[in-house]
């Protein structure tokens, strides 16, 4: 069995008295997209820089395909592609020259270099901009170029720090599609973002951190299972909305109730038996229910539950 693509083991990093990362452990398998979630200053970028071998942990280690980032940083670098949150284009050169420069830097030679620059440009939709100066590219195209550069050496793991920040909705969707395609090609992706709804659509799992500490980590399924006593429910009712609202508000385990055009939404804390009892009581109280629906948990919801809304 091949080792896990990425495994963090008790990574810690301090800046003065501030513990930026505190005993952080999680793992990512090949072909998985993992969201790395946390508010500003929670230690996401520091962790990513450590994984990219650009910073040293005070304690702990991380392994890429079993190789330690501390002992074999050069080997590790050939297996990861790191896309920092800021893109600083070199002045005066165009898209092809930029990619060619990095292809040379990654040691690609001759025909292989030309072929790789061509295929990566094509994959990232940069062909029609190949002669454009990189300083003249739009933010979205700049991010595509940034990603293209990260893909040149065909890394197994992509570490993307806020790649969608500052992109317009269309560019975001396009970028998301690129990531899905990369994941389908077997690449592991660790992506940090603030936009949970966006991550929820592409991520197989997530790590939530706050003040450098892991709050929760795992695949979306695992986290949903862990929070099996949490249910997000939608109730639709023919009439007597106020009565229904009053009824549900007085029931044990009901939280965060909202009434809208699409019905009454609320969180319910309890197992399936308690959920059945709630439905039974609602019917018995004479409320004209015509729908009692349990909504699927998405990343945003899991995040809110696990952090109890403490994080942004």
């Amino acid at each position: 069995m091949s080792p896990t693509l990425l495994a963090l083991e008790g990574i810690s990093r301090s800046f003065g008295k501030l513990k930026a990362v505190n005993d952080l452990s999680f793992s990512v398998e090949a072909g998985q997209i993992y969201g790395f979630i946390g508010p500003n200053g929670s230690g996401k970028t520091t962790t990513m820089r450590i994984l990219a071998t650009l910073d040293l942990p005070d304690d702990g280690d991380a392994f890429i395909h079993g190789d330690s980032i501390l002992v074999e940083p050069r080997k590790v670098r050939t297996r990861i592609g790191f896309m920092p949150d800021s893109f600083h284009p070199y002045r005066g050169i165009d898209v092809v020259e930029y990619l060619d420069f990095f292809a040379r830097a990654y040691g690609l030679r001759g025909h292989q270099r030309i072929q790789t620059v061509r295929s990566v440009s094509s994959f990232c939709g940069l062909l029609e901009f190949k002669e454009r100066r990189i300083t003249d590219l739009s933010k979205g195209m700049g991010q595509r170029l940034h990603l293209a550069k990260t893909l040149l050496h065909d890394p197994d793991l992509l570490i993307l720090d806020e790649p969608a920040a500052g992109l317009d909705p269309r560019a975001r969707i396009e970028f998301r599609e690129l990531l899905k395609e990369l994941s389908a090609h077997g690449k592991g992706i660790l992506i940090s973002s603030h936009i949970l709804s966006e991550l929820g659509e592409i991520c197989d799992g997530a790590v939530v951190i706050e003040k450098g500490k892991k709050i929760v980590a795992g695949t979306i399924d695992e986290m949903s299972r862990k929070s099996k006593d949490h249910h997000r429910l939608r109730v639709k009712i023919i009439e007597k909305k106020e009565d229904a609202e009053r009824f549900f508000l007085t029931q044990p385990g009901v939280r965060e109730l909202t009434v809208g055009a699409e019905g009454i939404h609320f969180d319910f804390e309890g197992d399936k038996t308690e959920l059945a009892r709630l439905l039974e009581r609602a019917v018995r109280s004479g409320l004209p229910l015509y729908e009692f629906h349990q909504l699927d948990a998405d990343l945003e919801e899991i995040f809110m539950r696990t952090t109890e809304g403490r994080l942004q």
Binding site: L54, R77, F82, P84, Y106, H153
Partner: peptide, 11 residues
């Protein structure tokens, strides 16, 4: 501007 560290990640 940090491009040096990106360069160091290459070969």
């Amino acid at each position: 501007d940090g491009s040096g560290s990106v360069l160091l990640m290459s070969g």
